[in-house]
C-alpha cells in the first residue's frame, strides 16, 4: 500500500513536468546574456542556422537582460503602464457594478429575473468576436475608439463577475439578513454590512480571475486600438520585442509573468473558490 501510494505521488509529480519545465526555461532564459540567447535560440528566431538548443542552467547567469530592459527600454515601461491602465480600473469598476448586481440576483425576486439571468449567462458565454462589431459601433459613436477607455468601459460591464458573485451571495444565510431587517436596517445597509463582508472571498476571486483575464488582453486592443500602437498593452508588444531584441525577450516574459504569478500564489485559495463557484448550479 505504501509503495503504491509512493508510486502514485511520483506519477503525479511527473505529470507536473509539462508545467514546470517550460516555466524553468523562461526563468533560466531570462538570465542568459544576449550572446548566449542567440547561440541557443537563434535558429528559432531566424537569426542563425542549425537547431535551437537548451541547457538546464545558463552558462553565465547574468542580470544584464533585466537591467537592459528596465533601464534602456522606455517602450517596455510604457507598455507595462498601458497594461496597468487598462486592467486596474476595469477591476475596480467590476467590483462597483457587478457586486451589487449579483446581490440583486441572489437576494431579490422580481419580474423578469429569469429572463435577465439567461441574458447574463448568454453574455458571459459569448466570445468577444461575436460582440466585437456591436461594441465597435457604440464606441465609435461615443468617440472612444483608439483610447484606453475603449478597453476599460465595456469590460466593466462584463457578465462573468456577476455570475460568480451571485453564487457566493447565495450562501449568505437568510437568518442574518432577517436579523438585520428586524434591527430596522435599510436594504443598502444590509448589503454593505452583511453581504459584502460575507461575500469578500468572492470579491477577491473575481478580482483575481479578472486580472488573469485582462492582463492577457489581446483581442480588444487588436480591434479597438488599431491605429494607436503607442497605447498597446504588453501582450501585443512582447512578440515585437522577441523579434527585435531576442536577448531581453525572456526577461520581458518573466517580468510580465511576475504580477500574475504573485497574485496567483497569494490568492490561490480564492481563485479555487471562484472556479468552484463557476461550476455551481444556478
Amino acid at each position: 500500500m505504501k509503495i503504491r501510494r509512493g508510486l502514485k505521488t511520483c506519477l503525479l509529480l511527473l505529470m507536473t513536468l509539462p508545467v514546470w519545465v517550460p516555466v524553468w526555461m523562461l526563468v533560466s532564459g531570462s538570465f542568459m546574456g544576449t550572446a548566449e540567447v542567440y547561440k541557443n535560440v537563434g535558429p528559432v528566431l531566424d537569426k542563425a542556422s542549425g537547431m535551437a538548443v537548451w541547457q538546464v542552467f545558463p552558462e553565465f547567469p547574468i542580470l544584464r537582460p533585466f537591467v537592459e530592459l528596465l533601464l534602456d527600454s522606455p517602450d517596455f515601461f510604457k507598455m507595462f503602464w498601458n497594461s496597468c491602465i487598462q486592467v486596474f480600473p476595469v477591476l475596480l469598476g467590476q467590483v462597483c457594478i457587478a457586486v451589487p448586481a449579483a446581490w440583486a440576483f441572489a437576494r431579490f425576486r422580481f419580474k423578469g429575473k429569469k429572463v435577465l439571468y439567461v441574458l447574463y449567462i448568454l453574455l458571459m458565454v459569448l466570445p468577444f468576436q461575436v460582440t466585437m462589431v456591436s461594441s465597435y459601433l457604440v464606441l465609435d459613436r461615443l468617440n472612444l475608439t483608439e483610447t484606453h477607455l475603449a478597453l476599460i468601459i465595456p469590460n466593466i460591464f462584463s457578465a462573468f463577475p456577476v455570475f460568480i458573485m451571485e453564487k457566493f451571495f447565495r450562501a449568505v444565510p437568510v437568518s442574518l439578513i432577517e436579523a438585520a431587517k428586524l434591527d430596522g436596517s435599510g436594504e443598502f445597509y444590509i448589503f454593505i454590512k452583511v453581504g459584502v463582508p460575507i461575500g469578500a472571498p468572492g470579491i477577491l476571486s473575481i478580482v483575481i480571475l479578472g486580472f488573469l483575464e485582462y492582463w492577457n488582453a489581446i483581442e480588444q486592443p487588436l480591434t479597438f486600438l488599431v491605429r494607436r500602437k503607442d497605447l498597446w498593452p504588453l501582450p501585443l508588444y512582447l512578440p515585437e520585442i522577441t523579434a527585435g531584441k531576442a536577448g531581453v525577450a525572456f526577461a520581458a516574459a518573466v517580468i510580465m509573468m511576475t504580477p500574475a504569478v504573485l497574485l496567483f500564489l497569494y490568492g490561490q485559495k480564492y481563485l479555487e473558490q471562484g472556479i468552484a463557484a463557476s461550476g455551481l448550479k444556478e
Binding site: 517550460p22 492582463w215 489581446i218 504588453l234 512582447l238 512578440p239 522577441t242 525577450a249
Partner: peptide
Amino acid sequence: AIPVASVVL
C-alpha cells in the same frame, strides 16, 4: 498564471 505572450515565446 502564465501570460499568453510568455507562452508564445
